[in-house]
Design a protein around this nucleic acid. Structure first.
Length: 475
DNA sequence: TGAAATGTTGGGGCG
DNA sequence: ACGCCCCAACATTTC
């Protein structure tokens, strides 16, 4: 048993030190802080966890560990079921309390409830992942919102500030003995193939840098530029997207900090369009919170449609179509460019996500859950709630969803959001030399470029088929 | 954060 | 000069 009192801070989706509620609370204790991360075999074995996001996370752990070492401690890695390995650690070091930030997904809630009950020491849980936690944004009758706009209106009436930075100076971190925990494993040690993915810089510092860069200038263009299809998001100085989502996913940056940085940017803005751009960005932050609330209050969305009547849709059984979509060989350049970008860098601009989701569900009439799963496997920012919300929106089965008859035309979307064909040429090199006139619909060219397939579906026919399939539900 | 089908309007060509 | 038609441009409805 150790003489000095020890409290454990359990890091999960909050791989940072700044503006971290659990860490701040732990630092008020007359005790030393032992930072821990658990590699839960259940998550490693999930078919939704694949190497790209896992690799991003492992680098994030290394980065957090590095910061902790500068403070005389280190990140203890435990492998096994959290309940078991945490109990062992508590016993081993004689810890007096456990601190962590809440995770609102159904799996995490169940896991955390069990742990709180089982552990012999006090557990302190904090609402850190959102500005306003589930339950804090409710209708007058006490029910959760299921429509975005009124949710947003209510959300904006609430305030949640950044916490003062000085807790980090007061915090005393435990100098962890060498024989506690394990080293951060490699992908191979976790039985994953290495991800041949080109990452943005990982970690809290990188996230701060990204935020600063974005708030400097590009946020003021966001209103127009966010729809632009950007081929290389972290190299592109025109930076149509904030490209903060991977950092959000692992809490390498706090949502409060991003929100208040945007508010400052709003204050500095003079032009109307600049202010509107900031508002558009803040909207995206609120969508993130909205979907987490939805999954919290309506956990059935993880397996079924939010509007359960849509569970009866007769989806097509089309493994070849699904594979062509995943591989980016559908014959629709905009679809193929986006899907190849996803595979290559684990990320897509939001507009591209909407276009390919509409194509899978409405043109191929394939179950949105197939797309949801594939996105979770590929995206470095893959978040269960946001991803599910986005897919159900696209499929028209969700809360606040677009009507079922709203079907994107992949060619007109392509012309509208990639007018010069820049994005297509970058990700579909077979088409690089095709004149602009044919870049969005190469089947109209005198000869189809070598190695590029004809379209796997006729959009007009597919559209009719989908309208009928959805109409069958309504009657 | 749709797209297609259908309706309406108005300018211009033409007998 | 007039009426008629065509059709682009825009508006509205429908899916």
């Amino acid at each position: 048993m150790n003489q000095s009192k020890i409290v454990i801070v359990w890091f999960r989706r909050d791989l940072r030190l700044s503006d971290h509620l659990a860490l701040e609370a732990a630092s008020q204790q007359p005790a030393e802080i032992l930072p821990v991360f658990c590699l839960d075999p259940a998550l490693l074995e999930s078919e939704r966890t694949q190497s790209p996001r896992l690799a991003f996370m492992l680098q994030g752990l290394a980065s957090l560990d590095h910061s902790l070492r500068q403070r005389g401690s280190r990140l203890v890695i435990l492998r096994g079921k959290p309940k078991k390995v945490l109990a062992e650690l508590i016993e081993r070091v004689g810890a007096s309390a456990l601190f962590f930030n809440a995770d609102y997904t159904p799996y995490a809630r169940h896991r955390d409830e069990t742990i709180v009950k089982a552990l012999p020491i006090p557990v302190h849980r904090f609402d850190d992942a959102l500005l306003h936690a589930p339950g804090e944004v409710l209708k007058a009758n006490g029910e959760p919102y299921v429509v975005f706009t009124p949710f947003k209106r209510q959300w904006l009436t609430l305030t949640r500030r950044i916490i003062a930075e000085d807790y980090l100076e007061k915090a005393r971190f435990y100098a962890v003995p060498e024989d506690i925990g394990q080293p951060i494993p490699t992908l191979a040690e976790l039985n994953f193939r290495s991800a041949s993915i080109e990452f943005p810089p990982v970690g809290e510092q990188a996230a701060q840098q990204r935020l600063q860069d974005f708030m400097q200038q590009n946020i003021y263009l966001y209103g127009e530029s966010r729809n632009r299809l950007v081929a290389e998001p972290w190299r592109d100085t025109r930076s149509a997207s904030s490209y903060l989502s991977p950092y959000f996913r692992f809490g390498m940056i706090s949502p409060r900090q991003v929100y208040w940085a945007a508010r400052d940017a709003y204050t500095r803005a003079t032009q109307k369009s600049a202010k509107a751009s900031v508002e558009a960005f803040v909207n995206e932050l609120i969508w993130r919170e909205f979907y987490m609330h939805i999954m919290y209050f309506y956990p059935h969305v993880t397996t079924r449609s939010f509007r359960t009547e849509y569970d009866d849709i007769e989806w097509a059984d089309d493994p070849n179509g699904l594979q062509a979509w995943k591989d980016g060989i559908t014959g629709y350049p905009i679809i193929d460019a986006a899907m190849r970008q996803l595979k290559a860098i684990g990320w897509m601009p939001n507009r591209a996500r909407m276009i390919v989701a509409s194509f899978l569900t409405k043109d191929l009439l394939i179950d949105w859950r197939e797309g949801e799963k594939h996105f979770m496997q590929c995206l470095i920012d893959g978040d269960p709630a946001a991803n599910n919300g986005g897919w159900q929106w696209a499929a028209g089965t969700g809360t606040d969803a677009q009507p079922y008859f709203r079907i994107f035309n992949p060619v007109s979307q392509s012309k509208k959001f990639d007018p010069e064909g820049e994005y297509i040429r970058f990700w579909v090199p077979e088409l690089a030399d095709l004149p602009l006139k044919f870049i969005h619909e190469p089947w109209k060219a005198p000869t189809l470029p070598k190695d590029y397939p004809p379209p796997i579906v006729d959009h007009q026919k597919a559209r009719q088929r989908t309208l009928e399939a959805y109409k069958a539900i309504k009657s």
